[in-house]
């Protein structure tokens, strides 16, 4: 019972952190502050992954999201003139008025479905997360893994083509 209570305490702390920083990401005015709140969300996500026992995914979350993607956003913001960004910092008020009750009702419906539903029975037991994940990734999922490299290559070429200056 004691371990269960510790899990719930961890869930409440990390969940509060996650939801608060996600709300900050959506509602804060300045784009730089948005990026900082987004970074806080990613750190909370990595902590939740650790709490759920997905150590490799937590590390990759830190390396790819919190370093690569966030730095990419910051670099792009620095290339765009600052006063143009500040002109469009805010949110649409009327859309917020319409969308937030609808999304709240949607949240209640989906949560009701999750709370009332039943899970499938556990089918296995993960001894070593990193080892099991690597074995599964390089045997059952070898072809999707190679396709992922093609996706990254195509995205890189597309980004170079889109981002270059017109002559």
């Amino acid at each position: 019972m004691g371990e269960d209570r510790v899990e719930w305490i961890i869930f409440v702390i990390l969940g509060t952190w996650l939801i608060l920083s996600a709300l900050g990401t959506v509602f804060v005015k300045s784009p730089i502050h948005v990026i900082l709140f987004f970074l806080s969300t990613l750190l909370a996500m990595a902590a939740i992954f650790l709490a759920l026992g997905a150590e490799l995914l937590a590390g990759i979350q830190l390396i790819i999201y919190a370093v690569a993607i966030v730095v990419f956003y910051v670099l792009v913001i620095t290339t765009i003139p600052w006063e143009k960004i500040k002109r469009f910092g805010g949110i649409y008020k009327s859309e917020l008025m319409i969308a937030s009750p609808i999304l709240f009702i949607l949240f209640l419906l989906m949560s009701y479905m999750v709370v009332k539903g039943k899970f499938a029975q556990p089918v296995g037991f993960v001894k070593d997360n990193v080892k099991d994940l690597g074995e599964e990734l390089f045997t059952s999922y070898l072809f999707p893994f190679e396709v992922a490299s093609i996706i990254l290559l195509v995205a890189m070429i597309g980004a170079i083509l889109l981002g270059r200056k017109e002559e």
Partner: peptide, 22 residues
Amino acid sequence: ILSIALFLIGFLGVIVRKNLIT
């Protein structure tokens, strides 16, 4: 349920934000 909340907050952000980067 936490993941559903995060997804819907992100969706709200897509609807209401003005800036393309955000």
